[in-house]
Amino acid sequence: MKVNQISVFLENKSGRLAAVTRILAENNINIRALSIADTSDFGILRLIVDKPDTAFEVLKKEGFSVSLTEVIGVEMPDRPGGLAGVLDILEKNNFNIEYLYAFIGRGDNGALVIVRVERLEEAVRCLEENGVKVVTGDRLYQL
């Protein structure tokens, strides 16, 4: 069920994001979703790519601090209130959301959002019990 996300530590200085994307391009790795969390000093680049293991290895080899983080991909109706419905379910069941961001492609039946949540497996079960579709990693990397 889980999706492997690549996280990269970046200093806040010019050219670092470009360096990462160039390395991925050179290794024929396709970025499927991306978000940057930053502070005044540093940032964390989060990526969903088609080949997460390869991406992890090449970035590490190039000297970046990289980690693999498990996240989930949630499909939701592409209409107003679609996201709110999903968030409501998680909140009512006391799942803390660390962060979320949108996926570039579309799922079979709606928009996709990447969610990092505590107690990942329980959260997946809870969402599914409430009729929310959770997309597997293998499916997501190829969308």
């Binding site: 996300q5 996280s7 930053d38 502070t39 964390i44 590490k60 601090s65 990289v66 980690s67 660390e98």
Partner: peptide, 14 residues
């Protein structure tokens, strides 16, 4: 920040 120490969350790095 080494890979070993790198955490995916801003809060943890801070």
């Amino acid at each position: 920040v080494s890979s070993k120490l790198f955490a995916d969350e801003v809060r943890k790095l801070e």
